[in-house]
């Protein structure tokens, strides 16, 4: 187990360094940020001074080396625009993004698994077909357009929910969260539903497919032959088996939810990292883009690790490594 963890850590570190290089090369190629930052009337001397101040006059590899050294000590450079450490800027916005992604995922799981179960148990019934049709629709609806429609209906037509911002927050262990205040809830409702929709459709399909396969298995028939109530057959025997692939996918999708939050945050002006990224791309704020990507990559790696652990907890065959099987 320890050897496995160490190997995983080594692999993760390699991916991280590799990504940092790719990202750095990529981002380095973006236009000249000095043009955006200095006064258009500034003369050559002033430009050169600004360039030197940002460290942009050094050769590329040296810039990367400086960056890498800094990164190792937690310094991912300073934002060109805000002139604060890029990492601080990201970490400042990260709770908002994580909260949004988390609430969206909770909505998707809380609705997706039960609906998928129903659709899987009764695939030919009207309700089963209805759920499937809904999930096809959910798959086809472009996230950003749904966001617009939500604003159109709930903010403009009905005037029930605010169309932008995060609302009042409450600090829990020093981290501000929205979902504990009424105003915060009103603000997070639409963005979270918007972000959840695609994952909801995905979970419905996944659960349905898994259920349809599981109910045909002998162990389900055997469980029924024991005279177990339907609730236990479905809730324990079927669910626990289909949960294995579902947990994997949920884990993997958590990363993509954070990435897709870029779109949702832009629509609802949610003050998270995604909106920060888009702003930074438009302002050519290189260090912030790099810092964002590295933080996200790190987050992905952590999530993947947690998913692996969860997976082995759910599936005894993985936990024991199969070595204990005596055939």
């Amino acid at each position: 187990m320890l050897a496995y963890a160490i190997r995983r850590f080594g692999q993760s570190l390699f991916v991280l360094v590799l990504m940092s290089f790719i990202v750095f090369v990529g981002v380095y190629a973006i236009g000249n940020p000095v043009e955006l930052l200095v006064n258009p009337q500034a003369d050559e001397v002033e430009r050169a001074r600004a360039t030197a101040a940002l460290g942009l006059d050094k050769p590329f590899l040296e810039q990367y080396w400086v960056f890498l050294k800094g990164a190792a000590s937690g310094d991912l450079g300073r934002s060109f625009v805000y002139n604060v450490p890029a990492l601080d800027l990201i970490l400042d916005k990260l709770p908002a993004t994580i909260e949004l992604a988390f609430v969206a995922m909770v909505i998707a799981i809380a609705l997706g698994i039960p609906l998928g179960l129903v659709a899987g148990l009764k695939p030919d019934s009207a309700i089963g077909r209805g759920i499937m049709a809904g999930s096809i629709l959910g798959f086809s609806l472009p996230t950003f357009w749904v966001g617009l429609v939500l604003i159109m209906v709930f903010s403009v037509q009905l005037g029930w929910l605010p169309s932008n911002g995060r609302g009042d927050t409450l600090a829990v262990a020093g981290i501000p969260v929205s979902f504990l205040t009424a105003d915060g809830l009103a603000h997070i409702a639409m963005p979270a539903v918007n972000l959840a929709l695609f994952k909801l459709s995905l979970l419905i399909r996944l659960t349905r497919a898994g259920t349809r396969e599981a109910v045909l298995q002998d162990y389900v028939k055997f469980a029924r032959a024991k005279g177990l109530p339907q609730s236990r057959v479905i809730g324990v025997h079927v669910l626990k088996n289909i949960l294995i692939p579902i947990v994997t996918v949920i884990g993997l999708e958590l990363g993509s939810v954070i990435a897709f939050a870029i779109v949702t945050e832009s629509i609802f002006a949610w003050p998270g990292t995604g909106k920060l990224l888009i702003d930074s791309i438009n302002q050519l704020d290189r260090p912030v883009i790099v810092a964002y990507l590295l933080v996200i990559v790190t987050l992905f790696i952590v999530i993947n690790f947690v998913v692996d652990v969860l997976y082995s907890m759910l599936d005894p065959r993985v936990r024991l490594g199969g070595a204990a099987a005596s055939h």
Binding site: K226, H237, R317
Partner: peptide
């Protein structure tokens, strides 16, 4: 009646026990 007064055993023992539940769970629930 099922599992109480009439019980059934299936053909393939590799498939009849639920792979993710412990043996005690599977007997106790019965």
């Amino acid at each position: 009646v099922r599992g109480n007064r009439i019980a059934m055993i299936f053909q393939d023992p590799m498939m009849t026990l639920n792979p993710v539940l412990r043996i005690d769970t599977q007997i106790v629930e019965a």
